[in-house]
Computed example of a mutant assay.
Amino acid sequence: MLARSLEPVRAHGGTQVSVAVLEPSTGRQAVYGPQTHITASVAKVNILAALLLLAQREGRSLTEWETTTAAAMIQSSDNDSADALWRRIGGAEGLAEANKTLGLTSTRPGPDGHWGLTRTTAADQLTLLKAVFEDRSPLSQSSRRLIQGFMGRIDPDQAWGVSAEGSRWQLKNGWLQRSRSQRWAINSMGRVKAHGSTFYVAVLSHGSPTMSHGISAVERATRTAVHTLCGTPPPVAPIIG
C-alpha cells in the first residue's frame, strides 16, 4: 500500500525515496525502500547520540562546550560544530561503536572524516528516533530530553520536511548536492503530532534535480506515509521545484 502511494514521488523528477513511519501508541508502522542513502546532516542526531552515550559511560554530563557545540550542530546545522563533535566521539570508529548500542544495523560511518557521507536506511533512522524519544532506550532520560529540546528548536529556515504533516514537531533535516551528478540528497527525520496522534517519521531521498524539488518530494512522502498508516487518502498536491 505504501509503495503504491509513493510511486508518484519516484516518478516525478527521478527522486529515489525511502520512508519509515511508526505510530508508537498503536505500534502500527510501515517501511518502504531498503536501500541505503547518504545521511547529509541528519547524521548530526547520530553524532549527538554517540556523544551522549560516551558521556554516560564516563559517568558525567556534557561539558558547557559540548552542550553549546551540540546546540549549534542540531539547531543551526552548523558543520564546524559537527566536525568538532565527530572528532570528540572518535570519528567513524566511535560512531560505529555507538550504533551497536543504539541498534542501528545498516548504518556505515562516512569515510575519511566525511560524516555527511555516512550511509543509512530509513529503518535504521526509525530505530534512532525510537532511541531518542522512547523510555526504553540506551540513552538516559536527561540525554533524550537534551536531543528532543534541540530538535524542537530548529532554525526557522530549516523547519521543513517531516513537519509538513504535523502541528507540533521535533526534527532534523539534511541536504547535500552531489558534486558528480549535481543531484540532491534531501532527508528529514523526527517526531510529529498529527491527526490526534504522534508519529515518528524518517524520509531519505536522493536524485532530486533541485533542493526545492527534493524538499517538496520529502514533504509529499511524509504526508503520504502518515495518511497511509491512518488509512486515509494520501494528498495529491504536486511536487514543486
Rank of each mutant, 00 (worst) to 15 (best):
A221N: 04
S142D: 15
S106M: 00
G13I: 14
L53Y: 05
E64H: 14
S167G: 13
V236L: 13
T222L: 04
A159F: 07
Q16C: 04
T105Y: 04
V192W: 15
G174S: 03
A185G: 14
Q141S: 14
S140F: 03
G231C: 03
F150C: 03
G149M: 07
L126G: 12
T26E: 00
A43E: 15
I147V: 14
L48E: 14
T26Y: 05
L22F: 13
A225R: 01
A96I: 00
T101A: 12
Q148L: 02
S143E: 06
L51A: 11
G110P: 04
W65A: 15
G166M: 07
Q75F: 07
A40M: 05
L102P: 02
G241D: 08
G27W: 08
A20T: 06
P209R: 12
Q141V: 12
N99Q: 04
S142E: 15
G113A: 04
Q141T: 13
A40R: 03
Q141L: 14
E66H: 13
T26M: 02
T39P: 03
V226Q: 09
R178P: 00
S163P: 02
R183G: 02
R108V: 04
T107R: 03
A71F: 11
L229H: 05
P233S: 13
G207L: 02
E219S: 10
G166K: 05
A3R: 04
V45E: 15
R183P: 04
M151H: 09
Q35D: 05
S76A: 13
L117R: 15
A237F: 05
N173D: 12
S140N: 06
D83C: 05
D83E: 12
G149R: 09
V42N: 13
N173T: 07
E66K: 14
N79R: 02
R87L: 08
F199W: 09
L171E: 10
E7G: 03
R10S: 15
